[in-house]
């Protein structure tokens, strides 16, 4: 096929388009997340000891860290939907932010008991439940970001999918914070990291295949 007939066809098919902007994508994502959080709390999933927990620094560490990671990751993912923008530098910032958040959690409540209480602190049964719930709560954000990626034009699929996976995972964990009765930084670091890691890995593996253009 020669290019002239193709140009004729594309010009004939031309229709006005609504420009994509980062702000409109961000707004759509915020609305989706707000609806999810509202539904989650409306279903009575909030932890019963919330008034007490709100006096603990380790409680506030969880939503602050996860919210910040989710905000930065989501912004990086959305901005990388523009073909001229790469998410690579943003991803490096996210990794540094995750390291800072984990380190701040350790500073907040360093382990003084060594490894003797490790098993009880990690609480495998509750931990697996947390992991499963975080993955489930991340699904709407993964789908929303996947749709935005399909509409956008990312030129670094792997990087964008990674940022989207981190954003969705952090959001799922953020929502779960309001239901989780564990505030031990070690517990959070292990089980939340595993849950977020699973979501990120899933997004990294599937989104590039579904969003090629």
């Amino acid at each position: 096929m020669r290019t002239e007939p193709l140009i004729d066809r594309l010009a004939n098919e031309l229709k006005p388009v609504r420009r994509r902007t980062g702000w409109s994508d961000a707004l759509a994502l915020v609305v989706l997340c707000a609806v999810e959080l509202g539904l989650f709390l409306a279903m009575g999933m909030m932890r019963p000891d919330m008034p007490t927990a709100m006096h603990l620094a380790s409680f506030w560490w969880k939503p602050a860290s996860l919210g910040l990671i989710g905000l930065v990751s989501g912004s990086v993912a959305i901005m990388s939907l523009d073909p001229v923008r790469s998410p690579r530098r943003g991803l490096r910032w996210i990794m540094a932010l995750i390291a800072v958040c984990l380190a701040s959690g350790w500073l907040l409540e360093p382990s003084r008991d060594g490894f003797s209480t490790l098993t009880s602190r990690l609480d495998w049964v509750s931990g697996l439940e947390c992991l499963y719930t975080i993955v489930a709560l991340s699904v709407p954000a993964v789908i929303g970001l996947g749709l935005l990626i399909r509409r956008g034009a990312p030129t670094d699929h792997a990087g964008t999918a990674l940022a989207a996976g981190l954003a969705a995972a952090a959001w799922g964990a953020f929502v779960f914070v309001f239901a989780c009765r564990f505030d031990d930084p070690l517990y959070v670091a292990v089980w939340y990291s595993l849950g977020c890691g699973a979501v990120t890995l899933f997004a990294r593996c599937t989104l590039p295949r579904l969003t090629r253009w």
Binding site: T3, L6, L10, R20, L81, D82, A153
Partner: peptide, 16 residues
């Protein structure tokens, strides 16, 4: 060239 033209067409809404 043709792939690029089609990509330009499909992603024209992403041009700022």
């Amino acid at each position: 060239i043709q792939d690029t033209l089609i990509a330009i067409h499909e992603k024209r809404h992403t041009y700022d």
